[in-house]
Design a protein around this nucleic acid. Structure first.
Lengths: 157, 157
DNA sequence: CTAATCGTTCTGTAAATACCGAACGATAAG
DNA sequence: CTTATCGTTCGGTATTTACAGAACGATTAG
């Protein structure tokens, strides 16, 4: 394995570890990592299996998982009878959007907590009011934020 | 168990499931959940064990984990020879800050990927340029964002 | 000193997870 | 029709994880 290939491996593995931290299986990260630097961008399941030295079953499953996450998408078949995938345009934005939504869920939970402390001393409520504030802020700020990111993306393409 | 207690349980469990989605053990979420609605805010390990019907070992471990996450902190002992904990002021902000930092790590990884495609066609680089843009944006926007959140918090207290 | 009680840590166990290989159904080639 | 080659799915295995219980050292009360 030459130097270039090693660097690519290293990149793929970094993406894999990043994905792992984000709660995805490491193998999903590897598939994604490959599709981020592959040439051409569209690769068949077999290509991926071979390159990653991983089993068909894993790659097939992880590919569909990543499609579900909005990070990759099916691509036109270059060879007949083969499933191709490529990184999905705007995939990272979608990824961030979903993460933020998960975070923002705490907003509603905090409200329910506040109801439980209804009538109690204000000092007791501070903890949940912070949660309320932070995640309401996340929720609101984030939308304009996504909008600006999308604009920025649109200018490029 | 009366209705109030059931609602509290439900709240605690919601926090637990939220924490689980964020990659923390469910039990850590339960400890946190309890410290978000406890009266008084400071509770001893024993109090927590009893309330959650969980083992000393779990609660002890999870408490230290949450301290490490910046979500709770040791509190003055109300009873002698007991460790007290309470939700940490600004804990949620700190929590968000760390999550965002983890996300922003992709910024650097994307750059390394771009180096691998150096000299290649621009169309090949788009994927990683998106990653670069999104997470550079996350990184930069987020700081002003935190600042404004903190200001907002300061106004309250 | 002895006994009790605290928090930590080690060990064990049940459950979840990641991954692979094999079996399978579908489709296309010979 | 037969065979080869897809992708999916099922079953098994090894690893990891969450949690509890027991053992331990430290501290305080009697």
């Amino acid at each position: 394995m030459n130097g270039k290939e090693l660097e690519e491996r290293s990149f793929i593995e970094d993406i894999a570890m990043f994905c792992e931290k984000m709660g995805l299986p490491r193998m999903a990260g590897r598939v994604l990592g490959m599709l981020l630097i592959s040439e051409p961008p569209s690769q068949s399941l077999n290509d991926i299996c071979e390159r990653l030295q991983a089993s068909k079953s894993s790659v097939s499953t992880m590919a569909r998982l990543l499609v579900g996450e909005g990070l990759i998408e099916p691509a036109p078949c270059l060879m007949p009878r083969r499933d191709y995938f490529k990184f999905r345009n705007g995939g990272w934005l979608e990824f961030m959007r979903r993460r933020m939504e998960t975070m923002a869920a705490l907003h509603a939970i905090a409200d329910r907590g506040l109801e439980l402390l209804d009538g109690k001393d204000e000092s007791l409520k501070e903890r949940l009011e912070e949660a309320h504030a932070v995640f309401e802020f996340v929720d609101s700020e984030f939308h304009g934020w996504l909008y600006r990111m999308e604009q920025r993306g649109r200018r490029k393409s």
